[in-house]
């Protein structure tokens, strides 16, 4: 009987005081702590060079850590790296398969590296290539696949050993909207089946759509780590765009709200947490202005992200 069955791990990933300084002296991580619960859909967000890929690199053994610890499903990475690796599937940011090998061979090989017998590997490759819509392309060399197909191939490859934790580093970068939405649906499906998912992305809409818990990393530090609802609750100001029925010629003043006309029939209004949208509609009605539609100017998470990162940059600069 294995020890996991006796003591089911509560955490899929536990990162403590993780540090990384590269050989050229670049400090990529400054003692980050991160906990991801089993079954979570977790988003790790941050600007370029914040330390996202370094964190993922350390967890997947592609980067050597300078200090701290990583545990995956209760197993310490330093104590038993093979056992940790077996539980993780990685979809990297850049295409990293042999461009000259056919799609099926790439997936079957990956299964073999994880100790899956060839017959079973072939069955699994068929399952995941079909799920990714690539079965018809199984004999095609990877280099002949489109960008979107290559991304899907990397997802199929990462799933073939059926990991408990799937890490995706910018999985929909450069992918068209249809394919992006299909990928989201698939990730939600495998998360619902029990696979813990960690996602890094530049598309904050993606994180807002999928992730139930979000951490924001900047300059090698975690600046926020909470559930999505709490995080969005911290958003101080949201900008709404109102499409007006008829063009207006002069500025519209709304008591208690900053507003501006983007063009004659488009009004932008900043709404703080203390104010409601109802009052905006009331004031517009009183002025005889009819609204035909309304939307957020930017993704809510995007506004918060910019706010948090700018705040962290200011604090770091002032130190």
């Amino acid at each position: 009987m294995n020890s996991d069955a006796l003591h089911p791990p509560a955490q899929a990933l536990e990162i403590k005081s993780l540090n990384k300084t590269y050989g050229d002296g670049t400090v990529a991580l400054r003692g980050i702590d991160l906990d991801v619960k089993e079954g979570e859909f977790f988003g790790l967000l941050g600007p370029n060079g914040a330390g996202k890929s370094t964190t993922i690199g350390i967890v997947t053994s592609l980067v050597k850590k300078s200090g701290g610890s990583v545990r995956c499903f209760g197993v310490d990475l330093d104590q038993d790296p093979a056992r940790v690796k077996r539980q993780i599937g990685l979809v990297p940011q850049e295409f990293n398969f042999n461009q000259f090998e056919p799609a099926e061979q790439i997936v079957v090989q990956q299964a073999g590296y994880y100790g899956i017998p060839r017959a079973l590997a072939r069955q699994r490759a068929e399952i995941y290539l079909r799920k990714m819509g690539l079965w018809e392309k199984r004999t095609t060399s990877a280099r002949m696949l489109s960008g979107g197909m290559k991304r899907r191939l990397m997802i199929a490859r990462a799933l073939v050993h059926e990991p408990r934790l799937l890490i995706l580093d910018e999985p929909t970068a450069g992918v068209d909207i249809d394919l992006r939405r299909a990928t989201w649906a698939f990730l939600e499906e495998i998360n619902a089946e029990g696979t813990t998912v960690i996602l890094t992305t530049h598309y904050l809409e993606e994180a807002e759509m999928l992730c139930r818990r979000i951490a924001i990393i900047d300059q090698g530090q975690i600046v926020e780590d909470t559930d999505k609802k709490t995080l969005l609750g911290k958003l101080n100001v949201e900008t709404f765009v109102f499409d007006l029925e008829s063009p207006v010629n002069k500025a519209i003043n709304l008591d208690g709200y900053a507003s501006r006309l983007a063009d004659g029939s488009t009004l932008e209004v900043d709404v703080t947490r203390e104010h409601s949208l109802n009052a905006v509609f009331e004031q517009l009605s009183q002025k005889g202005i009819k609204v035909i539609s309304m939307r957020n100017k930017a993704n809510r998470l995007e506004e918060l992200f910019v706010e948090l990162v700018e705040s962290n940059t200011t604090q770091t600069t002032n130190k």
Binding site: N2, D4, A5, D80, A82, R83, R86, Q87, Q109, G112, Y113, Y114, G115, I116, P117, R118, L159, H161, E162, P163, R164, I190, E193, G194, T195
Partner: peptide, 29 residues
Amino acid sequence: MSSTIVDNHSLQARLKSNLIGLQTIVIKE
């Protein structure tokens, strides 16, 4: 989703897993 081989960490299982890995690299090469 969980692997049928994930929970098997015995020395024998690891050896078998490595032999399959070795076979995979050799076939690839």
